[in-house]
Amino acid sequence: MKSFTYERPGTPAEAAAAMAQRPDAKFIAGGTNLLDLMKLQVEAPSHLVDVNGLGLDAIEETPEGGLRIGALVRNTDLAADDRVRRDYGVLARALLAGATGQLRNQATTAGNLLQRTRCPYFYDTAQACNKRQPGSGCSALDGVSRQLAVIGGSDACIATNPSDMAVAMRVLDATVETVDAGGTGRTIPIAAFHRLPGDEPERDTVLKHDELITAVTLPKPLGGVQVYRKVRDRASYAFALVSVAVVIQPDGTGRVAFGGLAHKPWRVEAAEGELPRGPKATASAALAGAAPTPDNAFKLTLAERTLGAALKQARA
């Protein structure tokens, strides 16, 4: 691990200001992904801004009837919150489908959104990777790509976003609240928060360097039946090959987002009109334009079948 300096500011404004002064600094909260990457020197910040002293750890009801989740609420606490379990079951289920008890105790809401979109070649510093080293090429395109993206990728990158939580946040239309060093706040719809790789795969999100997430807000509960279904290579503690988050209303209409398929949680609102016609029609519409590799073409069939299973579960 490369050496670094460290500070622990007391307010969000100080934290953002500290970042603005150091172009190669990183925020650290739970650190479960950042330290993993720093040990491999995939990430090598020269300065860490530890945000664990900022508070930002409450879950509060909003005037609109939703929930405002502080950036530092741990994944365990978010999944265990009674309001989340009752009104946003898809979010609790997605959180609990991710990582391990140890990691969820440490990982934060904002950190979960900011974990790197990744691929085995991103982790292997002996391989070309445009995300790790822009312009170096993509070893995955002709490499082992079974876990990687089937849609929304580019010639530069086919990494997948591994977050389960983000898939649920996407189906719930969460918004991300931030503040920068100038004190300017903004609210980013989750749909616009994560990026597709394009020719800048090194940028996973739209955040600026000095922009600190302060909260993630959920709109008022959608009701309906909420299901998160994850298919993976082992029963626990593995990334999704495919995951499906659905919210289904009594009349059969609803929402669906997919994980494990793209550089960001994959949701196509226009395809949701097909939900009453079933999984085949819906998945075809949501995944039109997919460009899988021979290694991961199975994910398209798996996505349709996982959606089918989720819909069956929702209607049971």
């Binding site: 650290i28 650190g31 330290l35 365990t76 990691l103």
Partner: peptide, 24 residues
């Protein structure tokens, strides 16, 4: 953070001791 051999209890919660800095 993959094997759990380093699991310890910090402020009442189990975490991976390997994936966190002592200074935090």
């Amino acid at each position: 953070g993959q094997c759990g051999a380093c699991t310890m209890i910090v402020n009442g919660r189990r975490i991976n001791g390997c994936l966190t800095l002592a200074v935090m």
